[in-house]
């Protein structure tokens, strides 16, 4: 086999092209989103797409920040994310630590107790009835408590705790340290990378959650951000369906009932804003975090 310089170069060029194109494919929706949120509504309606705002306008953002539902939604989502992430990581660490302590004989049975919930569930409706009976309905805890315990992250934490050097713990025991001291002074400080990864993914889970807000909030006067977005989508959908049935008659309602496109896009931008802003600082953690504890050996 003879290697041709040209062939090698073509191959390398193809690789770079594929990577660049796919990167653009991943980034393009975000770009178009930001551009349409910054474009004047009338221009957007006439021209639609454009790679650059033909008429720059911050009106959409002003509207969004004036509107009460979005601000309340922001507060709700922030509270749920901060409190939920904190409680979730603390509680999961407690369980994961018990599973990792070698002198605790029943840790295997306990692992199975948690593992079983990963492979079998009672299904949605019994879960819903249970939540209602527990009082997790129409209040802020309905958005927090159901997501606190995630078996997947409990096992990731346990695997990481298991991988810590046992000698340090043993010598601490000889020095008379209690389990509490070992956990807070040795295990947790050594586990910062996995704690950061877990907290990050749990926080994103809380921030992006709309499902509990849809199922478990009924008459409450607050909604998380994601549910506000979902409601806008649903009203667009309803109006489009009405239009499809009646012809153009519903056109008049449509402009009155759904926020204009630039406003919709601005709402999406402020919703994903915190993730995008924090992303550059945390991304080095999760690429490592996803492989931590997931590869045997």
């Amino acid at each position: 086999m003879r290697r041709s310089k040209l062939g090698e170069r073509l191959f390398a060029g193809a690789n770079y092209t594929v990577v660049t194109l796919f990167t653009v494919f991943c980034l393009l929706p975000f770009y178009l989103l930001v551009i349409s949120s910054l474009t004047d509504q009338k221009v957007l309606q006439l021209d639609g797409y454009s790679l650059w705002p033909r008429k720059f306008s911050l009106e959409a953002y002003k509207w969004v920040l004036r509107g009460k539902p979005v601000l309340v939604g922001y507060q709700v989502s922030t509270f749920v994310t901060v409190v939920g992430t904190f409680l979730s990581v603390v509680l999961m660490c407690g369980v994961a630590y018990a599973l990792s302590v070698k002198k605790f004989k029943f840790r295997n049975q306990l692992s199975f107790y948690i593992y079983f919930t990963m492979v079998f569930s009672g299904g949605l409706i019994p879960w819903f009835i249970t939540c209602r009976n527990l009082g997790l309905y129409d209040n802020i805890w309905a958005l927090i408590v159901p997501m606190l315990m995630n078996p997947w992250w409990i096992f990731i934490l346990r695997n990481y705790f298991n991988g810590l050097p046992g000698e340090i713990m043993e010598s601490a025991v000889i020095d008379g340290a209690s389990d509490w001291t070992i956990l807070t002074r040795i295990v947790l400080p050594l586990s910062m990378p996995v704690l950061a990864t877990t907290a990050l993914f749990v926080a994103v889970g809380y921030w992006n959650d709309w499902w509990h807000g849809v199922i478990l909030l009924d008459f409450a006067d607050f909604r998380p951000l994601q549910v506000i977005i979902l409601r806008i989508i649903n009203s667009i959908r309803a109006i489009r369906q009405a239009m499809a049935m009646e012809g153009g008659g519903a056109l008049a309602i449509s402009s009155a009932q759904i926020p204009a496109k630039s406003i919709r896009m601005a709402i999406v931008v402020v919703t994903i804003g915190p993730i995008i802003l924090l992303y550059p600082f945390v991304q080095r953690y999760f690429i490592k975090g996803l492989t931590v504890g997931s590869v045997k050996g």
């Binding site: 919930t117 569930s121 009672g122 527990l134 315990m149």
Partner: peptide, 8 residues
């Protein structure tokens, strides 16, 4: 939240 619904 996981076992009680299983009885459900």
């Amino acid at each position: 939240l996981k076992y009680v619904p299983m009885f459900g």
